[in-house]
Design a protein around this nucleic acid. Structure first.
Length: 569
DNA sequence: GAGTGGAGCGCC
DNA sequence: AAAGGGCGCTCCACTC
């Protein structure tokens, strides 16, 4: 049986001091409570028995452990679990810290969660010394018995998990989320290999040389000047929507908006120049030299990931826009000498998730193919593109225009899948909560929704009010419709990540360095690349079985072993 | 001048 | 082909 150990820093805040205690699988004390002078060392020394650590928050503990070379196998993250349970219970957004959970349990005043600060530069510079004294983050009052709080909250969480509709599934969710938190800390610790010189080369090629004074680079300035000339104005700030709109109006062109897809519809010689400027300006401001110098340190890009940071269970990332790395910059992601990347992404994850959730036989059949859309082209009048529109449109709640025909086909040919989505949308429109397969639960409707549904509480004309409340309700429906798919896809990916993280320990060297919703990047000594690739495929299949049992739905991974991430797709 | 909200983009 | 889900980030415009 797995040994379980409760562990927590000293809430009085003396760095490194802490408490540990063996606990039973029900959360009862199974050994003496011990105060330890160096909690991190204590955790490191227990490595051999591979315990499950029951602790307040992985994101508070794991970075410090990793800096000292300590990796743990598994944990139960009380804060992440509390957040999952609160959402399940319809109390999304209430404070989730150990202290908050403990206060709720005892009917005491619940402390707010400590706010996450903004991130302006890499947070974990390995060379900086940790502070000697850090404010406690558990939210426990100083006079509380921290181990007792851990035990009580853990036991309470086990009871609440058991009370869910599908306790086995929820346990898998808790395990995956906790493991994901460990993986996230490891990725932040390793960093994504990033060649600043290659990045600089891309910038120079596209933007021109870096101006010494931080002024706009040559190509960007030229695009702005060309645009102004084409519109017959002396100066123009292309970043100013009012200025651009007015300049076009003055030459007789009314722009519906400045969105790219709408601009592309407009026939005027200045439009391509504006689009060119927008493209260059995006690269410059988002991933330009300033970004590189801020975020790439010692050949690594180190963002900070927030597990469960998105309501659907996707990860969020703070700092550097880690989950929006422009494709063109992936050329700068180059493995260390002798190392490789194994890049794997789940092919068409969301429609496969839909097929499994809805137990739709027709769609399940199509998942046997590595390219579902091609497999379904026959259904959609021979068009792969139409198949994609039909499936994505159904999952996103698209209604109008060219999606109508493929959506109608979708409805006729895959009634079970369509019904599942329509049910989720209807629940949302009525203000009810929907859940993922494992039990992650969407937030309740916004105040705005409540107000809109209340309707005549507003002073507006009745017609206007009804129309608006209809819009708000449908928006909520689109959200819940998509939630069941996106949230289930996200948990499938977390299960995969948890499994892969464990499997990788069989090898010496491979490290998880990036994870983006349905895609994972392993940095590995070259000789292990093929073994890693094989593991990923096995873990994907096992993730499907853990989530959906004997479902026939396949979850193939597209796996590439490359030296440069830019070559992966 | 600091903070906020919207527009827009790019990632999934 | 039209414009539908989730984010983070940057810019501008606006407010105080």
């Amino acid at each position: 049986m797995t040994v379980q150990i409760a562990a927590t820093y000293d809430p009085e805040g003396f760095k490194d001091r802490g408490f540990v205690q063996a606990i039973t699988e029900d959360g009862d004390a199974a050994g003496p409570a011990r105060a330890v002078a160096d909690l991190e060392a204590e955790i490191g020394s227990a490595r051999a028995e591979s315990p499950r650590w029951i602790w307040p928050s992985t994101s508070d503990l794991a970075p410090a452990l990793l800096r000292r070379g300590i990796r743990v196998d598994r944990c139960h993250d009380l804060a992440l679990t509390e957040a999952l349970l609160l959402a399940y219970e319809g109390r999304c957004g209430e404070p989730r810290s150990l202290g908050a959970a403990w206060a709720r349990l005892h009917g005491l005043a619940v402390p707010e969660d400590r706010a996450e600060g903004a991130l302006d530069a890499p947070a974990e510079n390995p060379t900086t010394q940790p502070a000697l004294f850090e404010p406690d983050r558990s939210g426990l009052p100083p006079d509380a018995d921290p181990l007792r709080a851990v035990r009580e909250v853990y036991a309470d969480q086990l009871r609440r998990v058991a009370a869910t509709a599908h306790p086995g599934r929820f346990r898998l969710l808790v395990a995956a989320e906790s493991a994901a938190a460990l993986a996230a800390a490891e990725m932040a610790h390793h960093g994504l290999p990033w060649r600043a010189d290659v990045h600089g080369g891309i910038l120079e090629e596209v933007l021109g040389p870096r101006p010494p004074d931080g002024s706009p680079p040559r190509e960007m300035a030229a695009a702005a000047a060309d645009l102004a000339a084409a519109l017959g104005v002396r100066t123009l700030n292309p970043d100013s929507a009012p200025q651009v709109t007015k300049a076009f109006a003055d030459v007789g062109v009314r722009l519906p908006s400045l969105r790219r897809w709408e601009l592309k519809e407009v026939d005027h010689p200045a439009i391509p120049l504006l689009l060119k400027y927008k493209e260059l300006s995006r690269l410059y401001s988002f991933n330009g030299w300033v970004w590189r110098d801020t975020w790439v340190v010692d050949g690594r890009f180190r963002p900070e990931y927030t597990v469960g940071g998105v309501v659907t269970g996707r990860w969020a990332a703070r700092g550097g826009g880690a989950l929006q790395i422009a494709r063109r910059l992936r050329k700068a992601v180059i493995a260390d000498p002798g190392w490789m990347f194994v890049a794997a992404d789940a092919a068409q994850l969301e429609p496969r998730i839909l097929a499994a959730l809805a137990r739709d036989e027709g769609m399940a059949e199509a998942t046997q193919s590595d390219d579902m859309y091609t497999a379904l082209a026959d259904v959609f009048e021979g068009s792969r593109a139409q198949a994609k529109i039909g499936l994505l449109g159904a999952m996103y709640g698209q209604t109008g225009g060219g999606a109508a025909a493929p959506l109608a086909l979708m409805r006729r040919r895959f009634p079970k899948a369509t019904a599942l989505l329509d049910d989720a949308a209807r629940e949302g429109e009525r203000g009810r909560l929907v859940r993922s397969h494992l039990g992650r639960t969407c937030p309740p409707p916004s105040q705005r929704w409540q107000a809109a549904i209340a309707g005549d509480a507003e002073a507006d004309a009745a017609d206007d009010s009804n129309r608006r409340s209809g819009q708000v309700a449908r928006a909520r429906g689109r959200f819940t419709r998509n939630f069941v798919i996106q949230a289930t896809a996200a948990e499938w990916a977390e299960v995969l990540l948890a499994l892969l993280r464990q499997r990788l320990r069989e090898l010496d060297g491979p490290e998880l360095v990036f994870f983006q919703h349905d895609e994972v990047l392993v940095h590995t000594p070259g000789e292990h690349a093929s073994a890693v690739a094989e593991m990923i495929g096995e873990c994907a299949a096992r993730a499907g079985r853990l989530m959906f049992g004997s479902s026939p739905v396949r979850f193939p991974m597209s796996v590439h072993s490359v030296e440069c991430y830019g070559d992966a797709k």
